[in-house]
Design a binder for these strands. Sequence first.
RNA 1: GGAGGGAUGCCGGAGUGGUUGAACGGGGCGGUCUCGAAAACCGUUGUACCCUUCGCGGGUACCGAGGGUUCGAAUCCCUCUCCCUCCGCCA
Length: 426
Amino acid sequence: MLDIQTIRQDPDRFRLAMRNKGYRDTGVLDRAVDLDSERKSIVTTVQSARERSNEVAREVGALFKAGRRDEAERAKEEAARLKDAIRVGEDRLREVEASLEAAMLDIPNVAHESVPVGASSEDNLMAFTNGVIPVFDFRPLPHWDLLERHGLVDFGRGAKVAGAGFPFYVGRGARLQRALIQFFLDMAVSAAGYTEVEPPIMVNADSARGTGQLPDKEDQMYEMTRDGLYAIPTAEVPVTNLHRDEIVAEADLPIRYCAYSPCFRREAGSYGKDVRGLNRLHQFDKVELVQFAHPDRSYEALESLREDAERLLQLLALPYRRLVLCTGDMGFAQSKTYDLEVWSAAQERWLEVSSVSNYEAFQARRMWIRYRPADGGRPEFVHTLNGSALALPRIVAALIENNQREDGSIDIPEALRPYTRFDRIA
RNA sequence: GGAGGGAUGCCGGAGUGGUUGAACGGGGCGGUCUCGAAAACCGUUGUACCCUUCGCGGGUACCGAGGGUUCGAAUCCCUCUCCCUCCGCCA
């Protein structure tokens, strides 16, 4: 959510920002500005009625005490009239505020000035490439063939038990998952100093709204209607909401958490696209990094978070590239997003394994997460950031495709061996 | 699932219808004192929104959430949420 005060001062700037993000219809901006001024005029009216009403109530009390019953009764009549006026005003105010809120929730975040303006993924900025793309003197197998050959993942039984996109990881496949999770968490905690949390994997509607899943991406979440809960699509949701409705001390910033969680995504509308093997699942594992940063230092935090994620790819010796998403390809709530993509040797394409974003105050304003300035001034909104470090399935896909040998065996990267306790899968 | 007890400011904790944004204590901040510190003493200490000649200022709301009673509610009534205790069930 953006600040209506700021929008009112310069609507054109926000109109342009919306268009850059690919929204043709910017009418919601004008609606918000109109509703805001209507809201203010109603508030003014209602408040002065209440002020008078408070006066009258005191008068009535005094008159009764003084035994002047007739005058008191007359004053009560005025009180009744005021009460009606207040009620009418409040009803109207409630409607206007609800409409304003709805409008504000529909306005996307503004992209940072360093973000390239563009219409689609074609216009993303390729910022950095690292590592060497492996060359084979045999035809490398796609990961789904390798997984099957070694019995690492059972897609068929997963489909029977839950549905397509809910695999069983088996034996060394399961062990590899656990090793990666442990490795990622250890790096975040020991090397980078994040505080580890294990979050709820279901959240209520307030939390889903706080990070921007609602109302924008409702179709992508599994919903437990009976209990009003949503299965989390990422640990970002519960972990960012951890400080919802709180005021933290400035000295505590940046606050940094890492969390492992399974993630659940309906992937509605993406059937038939990239669905083979581990490319796209309904349930997958991920370690997420979340930061709450001082507004003046959130872009430093973004770079450090990005580096924390990239370091893992380097340690796993996976060739990867870094993109700066253009305005048209980035999400509704983000100000700036880096995507990290690893090379998949058999599929011969780049797979997104991490998305690192600064949301500035967009989420914080929805969640009322503020900090108290050290000088004791009024509370200000923090900036929130998050990034995957990392999403497992595509890491596993790239890892086994890139590290396969002609005999079908798979080498485990050095850094991971202390966790897997095996060097290769043969 | 059943029975009972709670929810007040940064914290503890008063307050059962009329200037109570809220006693008292603690903490924090500022000051006096001190070479410095402690102690003591004095002062101060929430958030949001509206109006403003933007300067100080004025106002409204908020005592878990929402509704109701009343001229007037932290205080009475209803609903909900959360927490605690006991019983049941259970990983």
